[in-house]
């Protein structure tokens, strides 16, 4: 895939999502379905994004690197940086307008729809990885519980998954 096309895919995913991991359903639809990336790569990127420093949304940099090396990483970084910054000039000009009821509703609608898509994506990842053994389903449930509760560090949660995989999948 040429860099410009890849940039546009990442840009679209960022511009149509609200919040870091929210770009995942769009990226999966545009990269995994046409076989540009694999679900394994998506899983690796999410895990590395959680272990690495900085916003979780930087998982796209990992995915970009897996798909197209350093160019892919750079393209993904720029594409993820631009849409959030649109708020800066808008906020200086019309802070009031941003806090009106229709804007709040629009943002809420996008966030809620994205939440539904993320739920579908999580099931999709599980199916694509063939992760349906009892211990893998238990790990998925633990991943949900620990992440919602938010007391255990995400990097540690990933490490637990890796350790259990090494013990049981070999």
């Amino acid at each position: 895939m040429d860099p410009l096309a890849l940039f546009l895919v990442f840009l679209k995913a960022s511009a149509l999502s609200i919040g870091g991991l929210s770009s995942l359903p769009l990226l999966r639809a545009e990269l995994v379905v046409p076989h540009i990336a694999t679900d394994d790569q998506v899983i690796q990127a999410i895990a590395i994004g959680r272990i690495s420093t900085g916003p979780n949304g930087l998982y796209v940099v990992s995915l970009g690197y897996l798909v197209a090396g350093f160019v892919g990483a750079g393209v993904a970084l720029v594409a993820a940086t631009l849409p959030p910054l649109v708020i800066v000039p808008i906020a200086t000009v019309s802070r009031r307008w941003l806090l009106t009821t229709p804007v709040a509703g629009l943002v809420r609608g996008v966030a809620l729809a994205t939440a539904g898509l993320l739920a579908a994506t999580s099931v999709g990842i599980l199916q694509a990885a063939g992760a349906t053994a009892w211990w893998q389903l238990a790990l998925a449930a633990a991943g949900v519980a620990l992440s919602v509760q938010g007391k255990v560090h995400p990097a540690l949660v990933i490490a637990i998954g890796a350790a259990v995989g090494i013990l049981l999948a070999r």
Partner: peptide
Amino acid sequence: AGIAPVTAGMTLATA
């Protein structure tokens, strides 16, 4: 094989 279900769970948790 262990990381995949955990990331799926984290994605659902994000939702």
